[in-house]
């Protein structure tokens, strides 16, 4: 399995209740998984643990045979090679589109950087917007820049946190199709989190349902 998550448990420092408990999940390479759940079900926390932004209280995450976290190991986010698109996109406001994307390419040579930049810009259809600043872009364009930036360093896994929550309803349909296309085209293993069943079904190969911990039902149901 490409991504293996075993017995993943998370609890906030000041809380005595587990947000996630003994979660197990396997993902094949190139698979697009959608994690569906109510707010508070811990779905964003799951992404943040895969990214290394939160430390699980228990459990293992292995990506491409590399241990990200287990009892003895904890790789920092900058060491994981995982891409993430944040709910608020988190584009660096003082850098233009090109520089935002280049930011993650620091280990590439100058020539490779330019090549990769062109590739991802074409992928997200924003070639003419390279010199624009984030505030000069629409919400949908900003999202595509965030996507391009996350994809540029060729991460092992792409994580998307509520990718449609910041968009107008009438735009959503079109952008959903576009996002689906980009992810398929790049062939990257992706996990995205949402609370909207329709979003899930539209893009994902497989939908994973995450239930809130206070229900005693099984944690994960494949739909």
């Amino acid at each position: 399995m490409y991504v293996q998550i075993r017995d993943l448990t998370f609890r906030y420092k000041n809380s005595d209740e587990d947000i996630l408990k003994n979660l197990n999940l396997d993902i094949m390479q190139g698979e697009v998984i959608s994690v569906l759940g109510q707010s508070g079900s811990g779905k964003s926390t799951l992404l943040r643990m895969i990214a290394g932004l939160e430390k699980p209280s228990k459990g293992t995450i292995i990506i491409d045979n590399k241990i990200m976290v287990d009892r003895d190991t904890f790789l920092f986010p900058e060491e994981r090679g995982v891409g993430m698109v944040f709910q608020d996109y988190a584009l660096f406001p003082h850098l233009n589109v090109e520089k935002n994307i280049r930011y993650g390419l620091h280990s590439f040579s100058k020539k490779e950087q330019s090549k990769r930049l062109q590739e991802v810009l074409e992928l997200v259809n924003l070639t003419e917007f390279a010199k624009r600043y984030p505030h000069e872009l629409s919400g949908g364009q900003q999202q595509r820049v965030a996507l391009a930036r996350a994809l540029a360093p060729k991460p092992s896994v792409l994580l998307l946190d509520e990718p449609f929550s910041n968009l107008d309803a009438d735009l959503k349909g079109r952008i959903r199709i576009e996002l689906g296309r980009i992810i398929r085209q790049s062939g990257i293993t992706s996990i995205f989190v949402t609370h909207d069943q329709e979003d899930s079904r539209a893009i994902a190969d497989r939908v994973v349902f995450l239930e809130s911990q206070n229900h005693k039902s099984p944690l994960i149901k494949s739909l």
């Binding site: 290394g52 986010p77 900058e78 060491e79």
Partner: peptide, 20 residues
């Protein structure tokens, strides 16, 4: 999320201070 993104893109804290 700004800082978290920068880290996910492989930057170390001091570097993030200077660039972001």
């Amino acid at each position: 999320s700004l800082i978290e993104t920068a880290r996910l893109l492989g930057r170390k804290p001091l570097n993030i201070l200077l660039t972001i």
